[in-house]
Design a protein around this nucleic acid. Structure first.
Length: 273
DNA sequence: CGCCAGGACGCCC
DNA sequence: GGGCGTCATGGC
């Protein structure tokens, strides 16, 4: 990654990033695409900082509505610019299927999101579709001045008071997560550093957090790249391409590989962009 | 209209 | 410990 300042904008060059692949692939739900004919622009936020980011062409980006200080202290980390994804993809490509997946969706990067927002988002995601997940999270944030509520704020709610979300049976799960996190019974900062199986068990103390949601929180909210969420699509990939098991050489970064595979298998039958 | 969604729970055996 | 119905809501 390279960057330079141009007026109030920050110009960024990074070959291993595609905005549509990364911000609209189901790992984060609060990025909104601003319609435009000639480039992709997204608005979103991380913790309390907003960002507008555009992709001008392949590998060329403009970060607006931010500062160099914020860019250095927050956005570089959020977009995982400290990691060399071309190196990762080279490593993955020893495997034939992964090689195809990387070629197909090589613009995906793992976003280093906030663990609390991730926990609630993926609780909402269960047995749900992406447009509706976005809608529910939208209504939630609108209630809190367009920012994600803190655990303490959400802990004041009940399943009934959350009915405006229209999140269905998930409301009681949201309330339970908020209660346990705000009271410290579940300490996300500590969990992030635990050995992976202990971290999994700790997250699953929350009602409504099963294997899949726990894995997503670990991967997307705690940057545990060895976490490997298995949903119906990935289960299909594992059956079809990895009957002997997922290759061990990729296990440590398995979650990132999983992102490429997920995007690949979901779009196999659609026409490539 | 019916099917399904980046699942988890409760209950069954 | 695996199999199955159920859980709200709405996108398609």
């Amino acid at each position: 990654m390279d960057y330079c300042i141009k007026g109030k904008d920050i110009m960024v060059s990074e070959q291993d990033l595609d905005l549509d692949d990364t911000l609209d692939c189901g790992q984060a739900f609060r990025w909104r695409r601003i319609p435009s004919d000639y480039m992709s622009t997204y608005q979103g936020s991380f913790l309390n900082d907003r960002l507008t980011v555009s992709q001008k062409s392949r590998g060329v980006f403009i970060f607006h509505d931010t500062t160099e200080e914020k860019f250095l202290s927050k956005w570089i980390r959020y977009f995982d610019f400290e990691t060399d994804y071309s190196e990762l993809k080279k490593m993955f490509s020893q495997d034939e299927t992964l090689s195809k997946a990387c070629a197909f969706a090589g613009g995906i990067r793992l976003l280093r999101q906030d663990s609390w927002e991730c926990l609630i988002s993926f609780i909402i995601s269960q047995n749900n579709n992406i447009p509706r997940i976005k809608g529910i999270i939208d209504r939630l944030c609108r209630q809190y001045h367009e920012s994600f509520p803190t655990p303490q704020e959400l802990a004041r709610e009940t399943p009934d008071s959350l009915s405006y979300l229209r999140s269905g049976f998930r409301a009681k799960y949201i309330a339970d997560a908020a209660e346990k996190v705000s009271a410290g019974a579940v300490d996300l900062k500590t969990i992030a550093e635990l050995p992976i199986n202990e971290a999994r068990a700790a997250l699953r103390q929350i009602t409504g957090v099963g294997p899949k949601v726990a894995e997503c929180v670990l991967l997307f909210g705690m940057y545990r790249t060895e976490a490997f969420p298995v949903d119906v699509w990935i289960r299909k990939v594992l059956q079809q391409y990895y009957p002997q098991g997922f290759p061990a050489f990729a296990a440590e970064k398995g979650g990132i590989a999983q992102q490429y595979l997920f995007h690949y298998i979901r779009n196999l039958n659609k026409t490539p962009k």
